[in-house]
Design a protein around this nucleic acid. Structure first.
Lengths: 257, 257
DNA sequence: CTAATAGTGTCTGTAAGACAGTATCCA
DNA sequence: TGGATACTGTCTTACAGACACTATTAG
């Protein structure tokens, strides 16, 4: 380090109490898809789930908690969250977004801990294999409503509630839905994903709105083959449906106009 | 404390390096109004300004910086920001909103400091008297564009840039404009405030949009006297203008419908 | 009267919303 | 052929955008 040391400037952190750590907590969401029993080629049942791990140590030993861990002096909190997510759940290349700080005195029995909360969004496929690992019993995907009813460690239920509110807001105001969708998707897949995260969402004429270039100014574009023919999917329907992708257009919302 | 101590559980924070502090930094914005030279009863010149203080100690001695200070173990970072704002600038009862964490290693020469950044919005009148105090030379309201061109302490220019982006977004998507306005205001005052924060904002027919109950679903309501007569203002115009107030309706924005 | 701001009238295009009807394909 | 999803046609109402026009009052 070429920086001057603390001593050279008569500066010391010792007279003041300093935090005992800067942990991160990560609310990692995924949407699971399950075939409707009976009907093939029907829209699947989708569920929003959050990843929880079971604590092995004091405090809150045996309780379920959000994954996370302590930030190191050599990394940012974002890097810490990426690292912990990889270490604890084996997941990388996730949409990972900081959203809030939790600093109430006494929130952690281990000491003065100011925690940094993230939301992560990941596709179900990215978790495959992970679910059957040797630690499977200690890592669970829990439906969000169920998780909110559980007694979680620390203030993790508050954090989870806030995280859920955040991704609901993000789902309506940004194109974050792409984190839950393949590169190409049909309109009804998109509609289902939005409804899974935001159950109150309902739009008649959803197709009209989202595909009319004029009003939405093209957040979606039709997928076409090299010869210009439309790309279609019949994963969930008899009649093949047009596939779309998100453009990188990000609409600016306003309450004034 | 009735909590179990660390020792009882064989837990100690000592083996790990812990942060040297959890400071807060506050970007406090205000809009100054100045009468147009010459014309009376004309719309005032409004400017967005940010509060800076001059540092007296190492590091960055003599440099301008955002106000802020170290969080104590007995308070949340929000409470810290409120306290520091009061101590350093004499301002209380402000709209104060957390917005980001800054945790790059090396961002503070004093050690490992994870900083919590807030935006504050305050009306010019709330700062009156403060500007002529004995420390006046050490606290300044600087036009934002000027501040962004200055060499500020730490990473405060980055923080200020992010804070500005944040209040621009808040200005367009929430009713935060009320923090810069009196309880009752005219449509053109509102329009001016929005334009001062977001210079690119331009809406022909602003009155129509913002007062049509149908489309905006009433974020504003007309102010009326006890006898039901409309309350008017001629502060900035010859012809008296209708006064409005914000309702507590908060529209939910969506890119999908 | 003029300047300065506040607001209305009116026209055009287009979107929103509702909903019935048609299209496609599998079992 | 029926069921399931994917669209399209069409109609009504309402808003968006433009812009000329009127209203109010200080000086």
């Amino acid at each position: 380090m070429n920086e001057p040391t603390e001593d050279e400037h008569n500066y010391s952190t010792k007279p003041y109490r300093t935090p005992d750590g800067a942990p991160t907590d990560i609310a990692m969401f995924t949407i699971t898809s399950e075939e409707k029993p009976g009907a093939k080629k029907a829209l699947p049942i989708r569920q929003l789930k959050v990843m929880l791990i079971r604590r092995r140590k004091w405090p809150f030993e045996g309780k379920w908690a959000l994954p996370g861990g302590f930030t190191r002096p050599t990394e940012t909190v974002q890097q810490c969250a990426e690292r912990e997510l990889l270490e604890e759940t084996g997941v990388a290349n996730v949409h990972l977004e900081y959203f809030q700080v939790y600093s109430s005195p006494g929130r952690d029995p281990r000491g003065w801990m100011i925690s940094h909360a993230f939301v992560a969004l990941v596709q179900e496929q990215a978790l495959e294999g992970r679910q059957t690992s040797e630690e499977a019993s200690e890592v669970r995907l829990v439906p969000v409503e169920e998780a909110l009813a559980m007694e979680l460690a620390f203030d993790h239920r508050d954090i989870l509630g806030d995280a859920l509110a955040r991704i609901r807001q993000l789902m309506m105001t940004t194109t974050i839905a792409k984190a839950f969708l393949p590169e190409l998707f049909t309109i009804s897949e998109l509609y289902q994903v939005i409804q899974t995260v935001v159950p109150t969402f309902e739009e008649k004429n959803f197709i009209r709105k989202v595909t009319s270039t004029q009003s939405r100014q093209g957040i979606l574009e039709e997928a076409r083959g090299e010869d210009g023919s439309p790309l279609l999917s019949n994963r969930y329907s008899q009649r093949p449906a047009q596939l779309y992708r998100f453009t990188d257009y990000a609409p600016e919302l306003s309450i004034y106009g």
